[in-house]
Amino acid sequence: MGKWFLGNDRPDAYSYNGSTQYTYQYVSGSLFQNSISSDDIHQGDLGDCYLLATLSSLANDKSSYIQKMFIDNGDNTFAVRFYNNGIADYVTVDRYLPTLSNGKATYAGWGGASYSSLSNELWVALVEKAYAQINESGWIGQDNTNSYLTADPNYSRTKSNSTGINGGNEYKVMSQITALDSRITSNATQQDTINLVNSNNLVTFGINAKIFGDQYSGGHALAVTSYNSITNKFHLDNPWGSDDLDLTWQDLIKWSSSGWSYTTV
């Protein structure tokens, strides 16, 4: 009842080493503030770049999909829609989100300085929470736990294992959020990628995280949002909310970690 109808489910929310369980706080603000934008996305202390990069691509090219994900229930809860093999599956979330001791977001940011700020924009954090909840259903391809990140004493950021929704695949999320056909490839050509970007398909790219000096993770997902034919560079939105990249095709190939995920419309 709490997960599907009341929205009072609380997925496990731990730090990477499992030593800290984060506290949930009621977060003020609105589902959306002004227009939907990739600027709304700020990845926090969770390795779900695959999810947030997909949302960033959606915000740039198909923002109506994000609006249609939500039903405002009028009681400070929201039904969030995902797709299981093209069939809609809903989970209900409330405004209680994992919070640091200083009142700021633990995982996906909500924009405001504190959980009490009326300028908070909640949609990214609520999608993330809903994804952590629906993980328990067993069909999203994660670990089937009700968690963002579990207290796993054997977990290490330097290893490939993951818990909760920490670590995943963009092409799976694309179809789970949009019901569109999605694919992954490691051998797309430059022209293939230009065509995908220019046709408003969702495109994300797995890049070697060491380009950012990240010593813990070998891979990081970014949204490929445009191609500049004058500079011959692709623009990649970073779900961190900073450190976007403009890279040539040669740069992309050099720093590739897992290739492209994309939709075909």
Results as ranks from 00 to 15, higher is better:
159 K>A: 15
241 G>S: 06
162 S>W: 11
99 T>G: 07
69 M>H: 00
23 T>G: 00
66 I>S: 02
255 W>S: 07
131 Y>V: 04
73 N>T: 05
83 Y>T: 07
23 T>P: 00
14 Y>G: 06
202 L>P: 05
248 T>W: 00
14 Y>T: 04
64 S>G: 10
51 L>Q: 06
38 S>K: 12
82 F>E: 03
66 I>D: 06
118 L>D: 14
3 K>R: 15
89 D>W: 00
33 Q>L: 10
56 S>L: 00
165 I>N: 03
83 Y>S: 11
13 A>M: 02
57 S>H: 09
212 F>Y: 15
64 S>K: 10
171 Y>I: 00
209 A>V: 09
168 G>D: 09
145 T>F: 05
103 G>V: 07
52 L>F: 11
176 Q>K: 05
236 L>V: 08
50 Y>F: 14
177 I>F: 15
32 F>K: 06
158 T>D: 14
27 V>M: 06
194 I>Q: 05
71 I>L: 11
217 S>H: 14
193 T>D: 09
222 L>H: 07
206 G>R: 01
211 I>V: 14
32 F>S: 02
207 I>C: 05
253 I>C: 07
63 S>F: 03
262 Y>G: 11
205 F>V: 09
208 N>T: 14
191 Q>L: 13
173 V>D: 11
64 S>I: 11
86 G>R: 04
216 Y>S: 08
62 K>Q: 15
237 D>L: 00
256 S>L: 02
229 S>V: 12
43 Q>P: 08
170 E>W: 04
52 L>S: 09
151 A>F: 05
169 N>V: 11
38 S>P: 15
265 V>Q: 13
69 M>W: 01
136 E>V: 08
146 N>L: 14
213 G>M: 11
259 G>C: 08
85 N>D: 12
12 D>L: 08
137 S>P: 00
242 S>D: 15
219 G>V: 13
161 N>T: 15
103 G>I: 08
122 L>N: 03
151 A>E: 14
252 L>Q: 03
150 T>F: 01
134 I>W: 09
37 S>W: 04
220 H>I: 11
79 A>F: 01
184 I>M: 10
12 D>E: 12
126 L>N: 01
168 G>W: 06
